[in-house]
Simulated scan of single mutants.
Amino acid sequence: MTWQSRRAVDPLVASLPAFRTTHPGIDIEWTARSLAGFEFEPVEQLARRYDLIILDHPFMGDAARKGYLLSLDEAIIGKDSDYVGPSLATYRLDGHTYAVPVDAACQVAVFRPDLMQRLDRPPPRTWREVLALGQVAERQGLKLAIGLASVHSLMTFFTLMAGLGQPCATSPDEPFCDGPAASEALSLMRALLSFCPAQVLDWNSIKLHEMMVAEDLFAYCPAVYCYATYAEADQRKPLRFADLPGAARPSPTGSTIGGTGLAIAAHCSSPDAARAYARFAARAQTQLDFARHHGQPARIEAFADVAIDQTFGGCFSATRATLEGSWIRPRYAGYLGFQEHGGQLIESHLRGDLGEAALLEKLRTAFAASGASA
């Protein structure tokens, strides 16, 4: 089971002929779910029906507590230095690693080069510059953009908090956030919204990229989970990517890392066959091939490959510093419930339905209670 995007499906399907060459007795059939399913559908349920699962790392705490994924050893997954940034570290918890990183992503900036040329501005390096760009765009009849539907609001809040040097807690036993920094982060989000259409509160990452390609209106977005495939030449208006603008200074640190990993269900009836594919998927050559089929691999070799980088409009070289300095969000058992609820709360605040003080109190209360709900 993977998730529905050519970035996710095509590389896995394209890898199968090469895998069958060396493993002729093993066959794999991939099925895909929506992005919302990828973000929230319990992996425990998927692990009852599927052997191989592409998942997000916040599920690690739940998996470690309940034991529904197999632990993978270093002979399969390799070392941290084999992958860009903390990609591998995101799947390690309590001394065990539960997935092979097959896709790397974090929140970075994305822009339309033709519209930025009209504005005669380079990509901003700070959020202060982002807001200045918004004023220039407004005078030209253009807009800024961002995707803030539910969980994406929380991810942007996380990123800004880490960029301000006050990252949110990763354990429910700790206070959720610093009050003054949270107020500043929310202020930046509200200020950005003044240069965006209201519907960005309904957009997820995929919708954000699609709208920027389809409509000649959105010049720049400061923070979105990168889909490098929207920079490929077959897009109507190929996008370009840049490092995350710094919240406090021109430094692309603190972006909330995403990406995906390949995990094996504990119930798997053919664990040796599943491990063989996981080992194959972790190879540098396999992940280089992923990139040749719209994939966004996590192996460091793919980020160093000039030809692959050019295929994606320079995305990998333009955003590598952000990935290297990214932040790992909470992964404790029970976190996923907070992630969904917390995103809804921040979205409600940004819609004007919940005041800042009430929002922060509800976030703190929900975060503290989330560990007990696992």
Rank of each mutant, 00 (worst) to 15 (best):
A214S: 01
A191Y: 11
F157W: 13
A149D: 11
R190T: 15
K207N: 04
P222K: 08
Q117S: 09
L188C: 11
D94L: 13
M1L: 15
D27H: 04
L12P: 08
H349T: 06
Q166D: 15
S187N: 13
A185K: 07
A318F: 06
I257H: 00
E361I: 12
T170S: 07
R283G: 13
A357H: 10
L336V: 02
E356T: 15
H293A: 10
E356D: 13
L119A: 10
E174Q: 15
A266F: 05
C268F: 10
S326K: 10
A307C: 09
A282M: 08
K143Y: 15
L142C: 12
S87D: 01
K66Q: 13
L192W: 11
A265F: 06
Q310L: 14
E210P: 05
G246E: 00
D289P: 07
A263I: 03
L16T: 07
W3D: 05
R125E: 12
F40S: 03
G95T: 07
Q166N: 11
Q107D: 15
C315S: 09
G147Q: 00
E215F: 00
Q135N: 05
A47K: 00
A233E: 02
P122R: 06
R279A: 15
A8S: 15
P222N: 09
G141H: 01
S251L: 13
R240V: 01
R190P: 04
Y332V: 01
P250L: 06
A304K: 15
E74A: 09
A333S: 14
A47W: 02
Y83H: 05
G85T: 02
R121S: 03
G254I: 04
T319R: 04
I76L: 04
I146K: 02
L55S: 11
V136Y: 03
R125A: 05
Y68R: 00
V130Q: 07
V136C: 04
P42L: 00
G179P: 14
A265K: 05
L119M: 10
N204D: 15
S187C: 14
F19G: 02
A263D: 02
S87E: 08
D234K: 12
G134K: 01
V108P: 03
G179Y: 12
D73V: 09
T22G: 04
A181F: 14
A32L: 06
F40W: 07
F303D: 05
S348C: 12
A281Y: 12
F290Y: 14
A181M: 13
Q45W: 10
L360F: 10
V9R: 09
G78L: 01
I76S: 00
Y83S: 00
E347Y: 02
A228W: 10
D27M: 01
A149W: 14
S187W: 12
Y227E: 09
A89S: 14
A307P: 06
L131G: 13
V100A: 07
R249I: 12
E74H: 03
R364T: 11
P124I: 07
D289V: 09
L16P: 12
A374L: 04
E41T: 02
P172D: 10
A89H: 05
A231L: 04
M189Y: 11
P24L: 05
L217T: 13
D216V: 03
L244T: 00
I146F: 08
G355T: 02
Y220R: 03
A104V: 05
D10H: 09
A64N: 01
M212D: 03
E301P: 14
G95R: 10
